[in-house]
Design a protein around this nucleic acid. Structure first.
Lengths: 118, 118
DNA sequence: CATAATTGTTACTTAAAAGTACCTACATTA
DNA sequence: TAATGTAGGTACTTTTAAGTAACAATTATG
């Protein structure tokens, strides 16, 4: 069984890594289809996206809903448990914003506009 | 120059990875010497510890103070900017605690007691 | 009947993160 | 003079994370 030296490590195991926080930040705004998430995260590959979504699902923070259609339609959303991360995610987003403002004179240089792609 | 698709990525660049949040969670409680941090984090190696501390220092969230003694004494503490992460760190710690409680019937199984080692 | 659209899987490869082992410095103490 | 304690550096190796490319399934459409 996994051992932690400090409880926060358990949190990192759930939302750590390169993509999970980003995925959750998108899902906190809206329920999303797979393709939407891919467009919102131009850097992610299909494989990584699926993998991270599965792990988040296994940890109970997101819900995967499959609609019986062709072509398939799959929607991801936060579970109640996932919503318990809202405070953390909001703070992280806000901190990231102000960190960019602090670090770079004009944030246009570092922020790729992707919101309108969806 | 680094590009972000979403501001939260900038936050992850500063506190992402396996160790940084753990280090910061310790420093939020107290200023610490290198050796204390090593004892608090039995899994970390000298190399990783130094490396992570340097990066945190470069990002302006921690302060490194060297006392001119032999054997050397080096103390790490949060900067004002580092304290701006307090909300995030506290929430993360709290979420980790309750996640352990939710996931494991008795947390003694997963939590290694290390606090008293320092 | 071939093509598109959507989500997902798999084997393989590459890149990044982390770990190992050994080295330095130097005043104090035994 | 040899060992101790503290913080850190470095070359090298291993492990883990992430990326690549090809394939599957299904039905409506041209």
């Amino acid at each position: 069984m996994k051992k932690y030296n400090i409880p926060v490590e358990a949190a990192l195991e759930v939302i750590g890594g390169k993509w999970k926080v980003v995925i959750l930040c998108h899902l906190i705004k809206d329920k999303r289809r797979t393709g939407e998430l891919k467009r919102l995260m131009p850097g992610i590959t299909q494989k990584m996206l699926t993998q991270q979504l599965r792990e988040l699902e296994d940890d109970g923070v997101i819900l995967r809903e499959v609609y019986n259609q062709v072509p398939p339609r799959v929607e991801y959303s936060l579970t109640d448990y996932g919503w318990s991360l809202k405070g953390i995610l909001d703070s992280l987003c806000a901190w990231g914003e102000q960190h960019i403002e602090k670090t770079y004179p004009n944030k246009e240089d570092v922020l790729v506009q992707t919101e309108e792609l969806v």
